[in-house]
């Protein structure tokens, strides 16, 4: 069963965290990702750039609108996603609990419904 861990936290720049300060967090994330991979549970990780680099696109009002900035302007931002494949929610929570981002942000654990691989849609179950 696939789960996506959504990492929500303030951006380093907003809370005065320097490059040097990021080093221990990077080491922790490195160990975390390697642990997940070692367990055969890691599907994919993307750590996102700050929302300053974000652009939104919509046609919902009839015409194309392209805007700078994120979709939701919140204090805590979506900062990265870990997609993991584990037997059940208990296991997903066991891994989420160890995610370094829990120390300064909130990790949302959300089950995947469908994903697309090898040319076809697949159920996560």
């Amino acid at each position: 069963m696939r789960y996506t861990l959504l990492l929500n936290n303030p951006e380093p720049e907003d809370v005065n965290i320097s490059e040097e300060d990021m080093e221990p967090a990077r080491a922790a994330f490195d160990a975390y990702a390697k642990s997940l991979a070692d367990a055969g549970a890691l599907v994919n990780v993307d750590i996102l750039q700050p929302v300053a680099a974000s652009t939104t696109v919509t046609l919902r009002n009839g015409s194309l609108q392209i805007q700078d900035g994120p979709f939701a302007d919140t204090k805590e931002k979506l900062n990265g996603v870990f997609v993991i494949d584990v037997p059940d929610l208990d296991a997903a929570l066991a891994w989420a609990e160890k995610c370094p981002a829990t120390q300064y942000g909130v990790v949302e654990v959300r089950p995947t419904a469908l994903f697309f691989a090898d040319g076809q849609w697949r159920s996560s179950q």
Partner: peptide, 11 residues
């Protein structure tokens, strides 16, 4: 202390 708790130092 921050490193032991794996919390960013400024935090």
């Amino acid at each position: 202390i921050a490193d032991a708790y794996v919390i960013p130092r400024p935090a």
